[in-house]
Design a protein around this nucleic acid. Structure first.
Lengths: 195, 195
DNA sequence: TTGTGTGAATCCCTTCACAGCG
DNA sequence: CGCTGTGAAGGGATTCACACAA
């Protein structure tokens, strides 16, 4: 089993399912089954070509291109996300920011102006926004989601602690930090009264 | 089927698995199986007593008490979490904040002083911290996790995009926003080239 | 010989269906 | 009767095991 450095260096061209399994905390059989789901691009006796594997996976995941993202809600969560360097480096380009706070409207976050929600549809539509990060209070989340969907967006990363009602063709990914904390409380509690 | 208001009012004392299923976007059979896992506290012909159900579930989830939480990393994510009202209202009390930025050390977030990481172990130990929210850069996440575990904490909510190595008795809940965005990209991509 | 790709066996979770209690 | 609790059936995912390609 080689180390990470070996893999990243110019030496290794190939990885085995066994090796991938260890990194991904699964089993070799699982890795092979999963990959075979998308075609068979491994070489028997050798393993998977690293470059090809990366290329294929990036394509399957849809991360081999830049996605146009709009940030709806410029509060603390929105700002944390906006500043998070990984987003841009991973291919998510924020092209619009929307907030209803009159204090914020018109101001800029590094050259990007914050817009009022009024012209949300035309703004998202004209910019060709594909994904929306919804970081607004729960009471307005459904309305903003509806309007974003009307504007033709294709997916929503939802931080509001409600179950959004959207058409089936619009995937929603929920981020619910309270639920995750509760999952942690549950795990700690289950693990037995201490230790 | 009754509305949320009915349930919360003083009128209804009981819910059926069918009703719970609709709210939870699942099936009645699933609800009954899940609940039966923790004992049988429904009444045949009637359903589940709402007060008892809430009480039992809160106990099972471990949210029928206040958890002492430490925030390690007072950056944007940390600040967003700290200000998020749901945390305190849901029973998570932040009793310590730790950050390595000299600019921040000694300053206060609403009466809570920001501490240097130096005395992390003794600080968490003396305060009886149970859960840690780890919101630091990836390169220092493992070290902070190790030290928190040494201080005797029982669970970690991890925002760093790495797989923490911790003893099996310390549950870790990962929050990986880039992965969730990628899951969204995948879902949108799979759904077929547009619509 | 090594390690993939894949049918077959297995496991686990969901769904069904109904006996039985209130 | 109405609705829970639960064995039994069903289905999807994981694991096994091995033929076969490099």
């Amino acid at each position: 089993m080689r180390s990470l450095e070996d893999l990243e260096g110019s030496g290794a061209e190939t990885v085995s399912s066994e090796e991938l399994a260890i990194r991904g905390q699964t089993t070799a059989a699982q890795v092979r089954k999963d990959l075979s789901h998308f075609g068979s691009f491994g070489k028997r006796g050798l393993g998977y070509n690293v470059d090809e594997l990366r290329h294929r996976l990036r394509h399957i995941l849809g991360v081999d291109r830049v996605w146009k993202v709009a940030l709806i809600g410029a509060g603390r969560i929105g700002s944390a996300l906006f500043e998070y360097p990984a987003f841009e480096s991973r291919g998510y380009e924020c092209v619009a920011i929307i907030d209803s706070d009159p204090e914020k409207i018109g101001s800029r976050w590094s050259s990007l102006e914050i817009h009022a929600p009024d012209d949300l549809e035309s703004l998202l539509g004209s910019l060709g926004v594909e994904l929306v990060i919804l970081a607004v209070p729960a009471r307005v989340a459904q309305e903003m989601a509806d309007r974003a969907v009307n504007a033709g967006i294709q997916g929503i990363l939802n931080f509001a602690p409600i179950r959004l009602k959207v058409p089936v063709h619009v995937p929603v990914e929920d981020v619910n930090l309270v639920m995750q904390l509760e999952a942690l409380s549950f795990a700690v509690t289950q693990r037995g009264p201490d230790l």
